[in-house]
Design a protein around this nucleic acid. Sequence first.
DNA 1: GTGATTGCAAAGCGTTTGCACCGTA
DNA 2: TACGGTGCAAACGCTTTGCAATCAC
Lengths: 145, 145
Amino acid sequence: MDESTPQIRIDTWLHALRESGYRLTPSLRAVVAVVAESHHALTPMQVLALAQAGDAEISRATVYRTLEKLVELRLVQTVHDASDCLRYVAGDADHQLLVICPQCGRSDAVQSERLMGLVNAIAADHGYRLKDRLLQIFGICPECQ
Amino acid sequence: MDESTPQIRIDTWLHALRESGYRLTPSLRAVVAVVAESHHALTPMQVLALAQAGDAEISRATVYRTLEKLVELRLVQTVHDASDCLRYVAGDADHQLLVICPQCGRSDAVQSERLMGLVNAIAADHGYRLKDRLLQIFGICPECQ
DNA sequence: GTGATTGCAAAGCGTTTGCACCGTA
DNA sequence: TACGGTGCAAACGCTTTGCAATCAC
């Protein structure tokens, strides 16, 4: 997350969106303002509520479609609740980095003291009391290459 | 992921489940067999299909309920597709570790060359061609403590 | 025997889609 | 003016739930 002021970030995002050929509509601006200014991970429904609270007239569908654009441009990233699950695989998330092949679904769980130590240190540095980890990387496995 | 044989892992899991007071029903055994033997991240529906293919008579609801138990006992962990999203937050997932407070939703994006280097090295060691990263840790933030 | 577990089917809920209208460029 | 974007509402699909029947212990 960069350290620019909210307004500068908003302008940067709008500029990037226009550069990519998107039209700067009021709905889009509203979503950008909400997400760019927030220091919180927001659900689409929360974005909708905040945008509407800020006077904007906007629909659910547009929120989803706009968030998609922001992700596409890498201005925004998605956060995954540890409790939310799409797939299940043997292993204990608290002590492993999971390497997953998005093509075939194969997964390898990797134990790495160094990695865990590093992650713990980062959390401590920022004053967070660590609860859960979600360390997963996605790559094409040897067989699918 | 431990290196034991499938059968031993199945027995270990069943033992742990019984220890926790769960009854070892045919449906539960079927789910355990499928997930413990697989080296793939499976969706609940895939688990269902595989269990049914293996002769078991089992319903969707039971698959969900059984997977919950396995996660609770930390025998299984959930995998999150990079494309699936619950919340959105400013930042670029490819270069950051996200620290999130599950209580208030606050998030801090951390850049760490060492962490990224370590992750890249691990992927390479295992023969994976890295595509996406999902490095997120959850901890109570200073203000919520 | 008895209380946990299951199957079924309905309900739930966030997300996606189709389409006519609107507004940016 | 043209066509990308929007709102609405219906459709969708995975997940959850209620309840009676079942079965592990």
